[in-house]
């Protein structure tokens, strides 16, 4: 959306332009009424655009891979263990960590809306909030995984966690082989966002 450029004739663009005008007018109204501090709106956006994202969760997973005592604390009380690394708060007030093993692969969905662990993963991607993922993750998780390019072994059980309350889930993927002796920063490079939702696995080194 480029400001000051009004030559779009594509209907899609004019619709988006309509929403731009509407939301801009709404913000002006709310600021005028004294309900909203526009600098706070800026700060909220900036937080999720630049500071909070899957790199937070990757640090948690890498620490759990590298430090068995931390992994135990993460299993016992994920909210507290994640707060040790400085991540807490909105949409992550009640965290649970799900550890994948050769026998069990966890995958997270919110069929009712878009519940997602913001402090460790940031805002959810569009597909996570979309009807196809919400509808299908619970009834055909293996078909959904295949669309993400993930094929689970025959012997692996898929456990889908539908986050229907305020509990937020972080999947801890299996640590890839061949990473002995890696430090946490290097391990974190293997932890993808999808691996922490359960629609992916960790990168191979």
């Amino acid at each position: 959306m480029s400001a000051g450029h009004d030559h779009d004739h594509d209907s899609d663009h004019s619709h988006l332009g309509e929403m731009d005008l509407r939301v801009r007018a709404l913000e002006t109204l709310l600021v005028g009424k004294g309900y909203v501090d526009p600098a706070a709106v800026d700060r909220l956006i900036e937080t999720y655009e630049t500071r909070v994202g899957p790199h937070n969760g990757a640090r948690v997973v890498a620490r759990a891979w590298a430090d068995p005592a931390y992994a135990q604390r993460l299993a016992d009380d994920a909210t507290a263990a994640i707060a040790e690394l400085g991540y807490s708060g909105r949409q992550g007030e009640h965290m649970v960590a799900l550890f994948n093993t050769p026998d069990v692969h966890h995958m997270v969905v919110c069929t009712l809306c878009s519940c997602y662990p913001w402090p460790v993963l940031g805002l959810p991607p569009v597909w996570y909030k979309s009807a196809p993922y919400r509808a299908r993750a619970v009834i055909e998780p293996r078909a959904v995984l295949a669309e993400f390019g993930v094929q689970m072994p025959e012997t692996t059980r898929i456990v889908v966690r539908d986050s229907t309350a305020e509990v937020r889930y972080l999947v801890v993927p299996m640590r890839p082989a061949g990473t002995d002796g890696w430090d946490e920063a290097r391990l974190a490079t293997l932890v993808t966002r999808d691996a922490m939702i359960g629609t992916g696995v960790a990168r191979q080194p």
Binding site: T111, L112, V126, S130, P132, R134, A135
Partner: peptide, 14 residues
Amino acid sequence: DMGGLQGFGPVQLE
């Protein structure tokens, strides 16, 4: 309340 609904097609990845 979409869990189990059918007909939405594949997950659209960007």
